[in-house]
Amino acid sequence: MRVLVIIGCPEPPVLIPSTLYLLNMLKNRGCMIILSANPAALKLLETADPERYYLKGVGFQDIEKGLKNRLEVDAIVGFVHNDAAVNYIISYKSVYNAKTYAIVFGRKVKGEYIEDLKEEGIVTYSARAFHNPIPVVVKLKELIEELI
């Protein structure tokens, strides 16, 4: 199974560890992973995993340029904590035409983001989390159960 993971602005502390957790779960299930991220997020991931324990074999692309690549993927999973992330995930779903999942998180979970994503047919999970990643991890486990 080929899965595209989208991460946008890496400002919330939970984003990078949650991404590594998701990559690990996907790799353990034999998925091929493509990561679309902005350059700052890629640098943070590389710094968090200097021996490439989790990142080895993962393909990556710039989040903006990835919209032009139109790769064949079976599913998309995106992290959402701001308005920009909502827009990117909706756009990726439109371009890649794949089943899309989003996890909306933050200090406060904005209902508006969830409504916009659901209106576009995106399966949406939410977790109130900013410093503590556990609520996101719990939702990621639920998401993986449905995805694979």
């Binding site: 946008g8 602005c9 400002e11 902005n38 701001n82 308005d83 920009a84 827009n87 990117y88 756009s91």
Partner: peptide, 26 residues
């Protein structure tokens, strides 16, 4: 980039559209 329908305006010799950056908004 964004939730459709996305408005794109044409005004004189210019095109006007919304553009989103991940960290900076639209």
């Amino acid at each position: 980039i964004g939730k459709p329908p996305i408005p794109v305006a044409y005004h004189g010799d210019f095109v006007i559209f919304p553009y989103t950056k991940p960290c900076y908004g639209t």
